[in-house]
Computed example of a mutant assay.
Amino acid sequence: MNLTLSFLIPALMFFAAVIGLGTYVTVLIVKALRRYTRAEPDRKEKKENTRSLGEVLKQHRVDSKMTQEFVAESLGVSRQAVSKWESGASAPSTMNLMALAKLFGVSAEELLKEAS
Rank of each mutant, 00 (worst) to 15 (best):
L3I: 11
P41W: 01
E86G: 04
V71M: 04
V56A: 03
S74W: 12
A99G: 08
S64F: 07
R34I: 03
A16K: 01
V77F: 03
F104L: 00
E86P: 12
V71C: 09
A115D: 01
L8V: 14
E48I: 12
L5T: 10
L97A: 06
F104A: 00
G22I: 07
E109D: 15
E40F: 14
A101H: 12
R61T: 09
V71H: 01
T23A: 05
I9H: 04
R43W: 09
K113T: 14
A32R: 15
K113R: 14
K31C: 00
E55D: 12
I19E: 06
R38A: 11
A32Y: 07
I19H: 06
T23D: 02
A72L: 08
A108F: 00
L103W: 11
A108D: 08
V82I: 06
S83K: 04
L8H: 10
K47P: 12
V30M: 04
S78D: 02
E114S: 08
L12H: 09
V30Q: 04
K102I: 05
G20I: 02
Q59H: 12
N49P: 01
N49D: 12
K102R: 15
R38P: 10
L75Y: 07
A17S: 04
L97M: 05
E109F: 08
T37V: 11
F14G: 14
R61Y: 11
L103I: 01
P92K: 00
D42V: 14
L57Y: 01
S116K: 13
A16T: 13
N96W: 06
E69I: 13
W85T: 00
S52Q: 01
P10Q: 01
R35L: 09
M95I: 12
T4Q: 11
E109G: 15
A99C: 09
M1W: 06
E40P: 15
Q59L: 11
F70C: 14
E48D: 06
V27G: 04
G76M: 01
D63I: 04
L111V: 05
N96D: 02
E55Q: 13
E48Q: 10
R43V: 14
V62P: 11
T23E: 02
I19K: 08
P10T: 03
L33Y: 01
A16S: 10
V27H: 05
D42H: 05
A91D: 09
A81G: 03
R34L: 02
V62K: 09
D42E: 11
S90H: 02
M98I: 12
S116C: 11
R51K: 15
L3R: 15
S90E: 01
T50H: 08
A115H: 01
M1I: 01
K31D: 03
F7V: 08
A108P: 11
F70E: 15
I9K: 03
F104M: 05
G76E: 00
E73R: 07
